[in-house]
């Protein structure tokens, strides 16, 4: 052993020796693990719910979008009125106005064309004229 006087520990040494003085409380570990487990479960539920909401929103967007409206218009354009329908209109017109069957058929056909012009979005002036014609009838 050396006879030299023992040197003073440095301030850093003294501080270092207190490094493990404080410890976490006993319940911190289970508390943290339980909270982490719950947090992860909640996150998973939120993600699932978020996915569902997104899917519903996409579905709503697709069904109400301009694309779907345009496709609806296209479908309407392709729809050819049946002869029976025109005939029924002609008979009704003939009965209401007391006119001949030929004139009533021609008029029913004319009205059908006018209503199509309104529905299919003709230019503004033409549409106004068609609407006016329809109201006159």
């Amino acid at each position: 052993m050396s006879d030299l006087p023992r040197s003073e520990p440095s301030i850093e040494d003294i501080i270092l020796s207190a490094a493990h003085h404080v410890r976490p409380s006993r319940d911190l570990r289970p508390r943290t693990i339980e909270a982490a487990r719950k947090h992860c479960q909640d996150r998973r539920s939120e993600q699932t719910l978020g996915g569902l909401v997104l899917a519903i929103m996409l579905l709503l967007l697709l069904t109400n979008s301009p694309v779907s409206q345009y496709s609806e218009q296209l479908r309407a354009r392709r729809e050819i009125p049946r002869a029976a329908e025109i005939e029924r209109l002609a008979l009704q017109y003939s009965h209401d106005r007391q006119v001949g069957a030929h004139f009533a058929l021609s008029e029913a056909f004319n009205r059908l064309r006018l209503s199509q012009a309104v529905r299919f979005g003709q230019p503004m002036q033409k549409r106004a004229w068609a609407a006016n014609q329809l109201s006159r009838h």
Binding site: P24, L28, R31, T32, R37, H39
Partner: peptide, 11 residues
């Protein structure tokens, strides 16, 4: 503070 941090990290 430690618990909140570790829970965030777990997520």
């Amino acid at each position: 503070a430690v618990q909140t941090t570790l829970v965030k990290i777990a997520g």
